[in-house]
Computed example of a mutant assay.
Amino acid sequence: MEVYAGVDVGGTNIVCGLVDSSGKVMHRIKRATEAAKGPDAVLEKIAAMIEEAAVGYAEQSGTDIAVVAAGIGLPGFVDPDEGIARFAGNLGWRNLPAVQRLQARLNLPVYIDNDVRTYVYGEAMYGAGKGFKDVLGITVGTGIASAMVNNGKLYYGFRNMSGELGHIVMEGLSDPCPCGLNGCLETFASASGMVRQAKKALRSGEASILQSWFPEERLEELSAADLSRAYDQGDPYAISLMEQAGALLGRALSYAVPLVSPELVIIGGGGALAGDRLLEPLKRELYSRILPDYREQLKVVTALYNDDAGVTGSAMYAKQKHIGASV
């Protein structure tokens, strides 16, 4: 049985899966990234996980399998043509020849791309976007990024740098962003941005049920899930915070929609877990700021396979590239 390996690499965890030619995840494993050990250690872990997944699935299923190719979704700026991880801040990588090293280690074709692109590719082709031609995907997590799939193909832009929606500077925001700008969208509307805003407000004495849940000595434990929990209990501050974040996302999307004219927008990452708490203010703001000709047909949904989209997309990206290379 021929399968493709898909690997989703994050700053905290690496998820590796085996995916059949139809896009079904057959087997998956998850391990800590341990980026502090350096790029060589992380690349070795990726290779070892692919081998472990192949052996584990073969033993579990009693099926002989062959891994045809591997696709790796990496954070940051990636040059998929040269196979180089140009810059991944949360991994500490710069100009790393990832494909060359992994192919030498695994003795099979390896293809890399930005992790948001592979995630959106998986959702667009096999998840919530299946059957749609023009799909814009947004991941709302530690940061905010996007990717566009048109007729089954990813859009890259000059220097492969398209999609950095989180670094649009928004009117009314002023917090410094690690990118060097001030007031970037993701400083407020990402999952980590909302948590950061909440901590700042609570330290300033903001009235909220979160004050009793997280006194000063426990404030660092506050998570995005806690904001949703407070929202569901009717906490005015949590409701206001998520309304503002959703509206900011909608406003940013109102800049993107006229440029690429998608028929579907998929919200993924941790933001998808917030559901309508974010989506309702997002859609209100978005639809109020775009022409009726865009608004009447545009759908906004959450990701269907939020956990597996990165694995599926990476594997199917590898399939697409491998078949193309073989023709």
Rank of each mutant, 00 (worst) to 15 (best):
A145R: 00
D64Q: 15
Y231L: 00
P176Q: 07
T142C: 04
G166C: 06
Q60F: 12
A247V: 00
A124F: 01
A66H: 15
R105N: 12
K30V: 15
N160E: 01
Y287L: 13
Y231M: 01
N182P: 03
A124I: 01
V67Q: 04
D293R: 06
D232W: 00
A230G: 09
S192Y: 00
G83E: 03
P97V: 07
A274Y: 02
R101I: 15
L219K: 10
R203F: 04
I209F: 00
G92Y: 02
G17S: 03
G205S: 08
E206F: 13
R295K: 14
L154H: 04
A318D: 12
A53C: 15
G23F: 07
S228Q: 08
G180C: 12
K130S: 14
A309W: 06
K199S: 05
I112P: 05
C177W: 08
G271R: 07
G172R: 02
G172N: 10
V9L: 08
P39N: 09
M26K: 14
G122E: 05
I50R: 04
Y237V: 03
Y231E: 02
L102E: 06
V68Q: 10
E285C: 09
G131E: 09
G6L: 02
E206P: 07
G313K: 04
L185N: 12
Y156N: 06
G180S: 13
D232I: 01
T302N: 12
A198R: 09
R28E: 15
A58F: 03
G271V: 11
L286H: 08
E171L: 06
L249N: 03
